[in-house]
Lab assay of single mutants.
Amino acid sequence: RKEMTAACTPRRRIINLTSVLSLQEEINEQGHEVLREMLHNHSFVGCVNPQWALAQHQTKLYLLNTTKLSEELFYQILIYDFANFGVLRLSEPAPLFDLAMLALDSPESGWTEEDGPKEGLAEYIVEFLKKKAEMLADYFSLEIDEEGNLIGLPLLIDNYVPPLEGLPIFILRLATEVNWDEEKECFESLSKECAMFYSIRKQYISEESTLSGQQSEVPGSIPNSWKWTVEHIVYKALRSHILPPKHFTEDGNILQLANLPDLYKVFERC
């Protein structure tokens, strides 16, 4: 597991931080080997919608929660590849102030007048994250320049770009939802926020969305749709870069829909 690298990086740093090793061990302890084997050997059937997909393993048909699986995938990559990410360069710098204002204007932020003026909160978020810029760049390849612009994001899987519609809320939550006081809790909560931002979430995906850094293989055609990215990038990574937690067998994120021999018997009677 320590050699797990989802995106190509030129050289690998050895990380011996106790906090990170502890988080890696927790993933191992909570892992479910049968689910790992199923995901490793599954045959992708198709997307139901951005949140759900169908896959077959041996004779069984499964309904998989793409949102939760991708979130767990990105969390584990962030923990196992800690401080070893490439950088996704933004085509132009994104001012943190503008991103924070967009987030505060969104109902998702939960902002009320009692929280104070949005401009003041946005300025605080910019200054707060600028103070964390060195650590964010060093460990997470999340790059913020001296003017308070976001200029780079971590490359977690080759050819995958997170849904940038979720970027404003991500920046807001970096400042408000991460435990910045304790090292282990900081790395864990920061990785979880980043994983949620990178995950496939239906509120940020339309039929026209593209999450891939590449064009489709047909010359002159439109960019790959999110469905292509889910199948050929995300579920491909799920084959080798995730140890599913045991609770996925109990919380409805992986559901067995049918045993195909039983279905064949039904059709034979028709």
Rank of each mutant, 00 (worst) to 15 (best):
R1P: 13
R1G: 11
R1N: 14
E3Q: 06
M4E: 09
M4C: 12
A6Q: 04
A6R: 04
A7L: 08
A7Y: 06
C8E: 13
C8S: 10
C8I: 06
T9N: 11
P10A: 06
P10T: 08
R13K: 06
I14K: 12
I15Q: 05
I15Y: 05
I15A: 06
N16M: 10
N16V: 06
L17V: 05
L17M: 06
L17I: 07
T18F: 12
S22E: 15
L23Y: 01
L23W: 02
L23E: 00
Q24W: 09
E25S: 09
E25P: 00
E26C: 11
E26H: 11
E26V: 06
E26F: 05
N28Y: 13
G31Q: 13
E33V: 08
V34I: 11
L35H: 06
R36W: 08
R36E: 12
R36T: 12
E37A: 10
E37G: 07
M38A: 09
M38E: 00
L39C: 04
L39Y: 01
H40C: 14
N41E: 15
N41T: 11
S43K: 15
F44P: 02
V45Q: 05
V45M: 06
G46S: 15
C47V: 14
C47P: 03
C47W: 04
V48S: 03
N49D: 15
Q51V: 10
W52E: 00
A53N: 00
A53H: 00
A53Q: 01
L54G: 01
L54H: 01
A55R: 01
A55T: 10
Q56R: 15
Q56I: 15
Q56V: 15
H57Q: 03
T59S: 15
K60H: 08
L61R: 03
L61F: 06
L61S: 04
Y62S: 00
N65I: 02
N65V: 01
N65C: 05
N65R: 00
T66L: 02
T66N: 03
T66V: 00
T66Q: 02
T66G: 00
T67V: 02
T67D: 00
T67H: 05
K68P: 00
L69K: 00
E71P: 02
E71L: 05
I77K: 06
Y80S: 07
F82Q: 03
A83L: 03
F85M: 06
G86K: 13
G86N: 15
G86F: 08
G86L: 13
V87A: 07
L88H: 14
R89C: 08
L90Q: 02
S91G: 13
S91C: 15
A94D: 05
L96G: 00
F97P: 04
F97W: 11
D98E: 13
D98V: 06
L99P: 02
L99R: 01
A100D: 02
A100K: 01
M101R: 13
M101K: 15
L102G: 14
L102K: 13
A103I: 03
D105C: 12
D105W: 03
D105Q: 10
S106Y: 10
S106H: 08
P107W: 09
E108H: 12
G110A: 11
G110L: 14
G110N: 14
T112Q: 14
E113S: 14
E113C: 15
E113W: 08
D115W: 08
D115E: 11
G116F: 08
P117G: 11
K118F: 10
K118M: 08
L121H: 11
A122N: 02
Y124P: 09
Y124H: 09
Y124S: 15
Y124V: 14
V126E: 08
E127H: 14
F128K: 08
F128G: 10
F128L: 12
L129P: 01
K130S: 11
K131Q: 13
M135R: 03
M135N: 03
M135H: 03
D138A: 05
Y139W: 04
F140Q: 01
F140P: 00
L142E: 02
E143D: 09
E143R: 07
I144G: 00
I144N: 01
E147F: 13
G148I: 03
N149Q: 12
G152P: 00
G152V: 03
L153P: 01
P154W: 01
P154R: 00
L156I: 06
D158Y: 07
N159T: 10
Y160W: 02
V161F: 13
P162E: 00
P163Y: 09
P163M: 11
P163D: 05
L164Y: 07
L164D: 03
E165K: 12
G166P: 04
G166M: 02
P168G: 10
F170A: 00
I171C: 09
L172S: 06
R173I: 01
L174A: 04
A175G: 07
A175D: 00
A175F: 13
E177D: 10
V178R: 01
N179T: 14
E183A: 03
E183P: 04
E185D: 13
C186W: 03
C186R: 04
F187M: 06
F187C: 03
E188T: 11
S189E: 13
S189M: 11
S191L: 04
K192L: 06
C194A: 14
F197P: 00
Y198V: 01
S199K: 02
S199N: 00
S199Q: 00
I200N: 03
I200Q: 03
I200S: 02
R201P: 03
Q203A: 11
Y204Q: 03
S206T: 15
S206K: 14
S206L: 09
L211Y: 13
S212P: 09
S212W: 13
G213N: 13
G213Q: 09
G213V: 14
Q214W: 07
Q214I: 09
Q215R: 11
S216G: 15
S216W: 09
S216V: 14
S216Q: 13
E217R: 09
P219D: 12
P219S: 10
G220C: 13
P223A: 15
P223S: 15
N224S: 14
N224M: 14
N224C: 12
N224E: 15
S225K: 12
S225Q: 09
W226D: 00
K227Y: 04
K227E: 05
T229A: 11
T229E: 07
V230S: 03
I233E: 05
Y235V: 00
A237W: 04
L238W: 02
L238R: 00
L238V: 06
L238S: 03
R239I: 01
R239C: 02
R239Q: 05
S240R: 13
S240W: 07
I242H: 01
P244Y: 02
P245Q: 04
P245D: 02
P245K: 05
P245S: 05
P245M: 03
H247A: 13
F248N: 01
E250C: 08
E250F: 07
E250V: 11
E250Q: 08
D251C: 10
G252V: 03
N253L: 13
N253T: 11
N253A: 13
I254S: 02
I254Y: 03
I254K: 02
L255P: 03
Q256L: 12
Q256K: 14
N259Q: 13
N259I: 05
P261D: 13
D262I: 05
D262M: 06
D262F: 12
D262S: 07
Y264E: 15
Y264N: 15
K265P: 14
V266Y: 10
F267T: 15
E268G: 07
E268V: 05
E268M: 05
R269I: 05
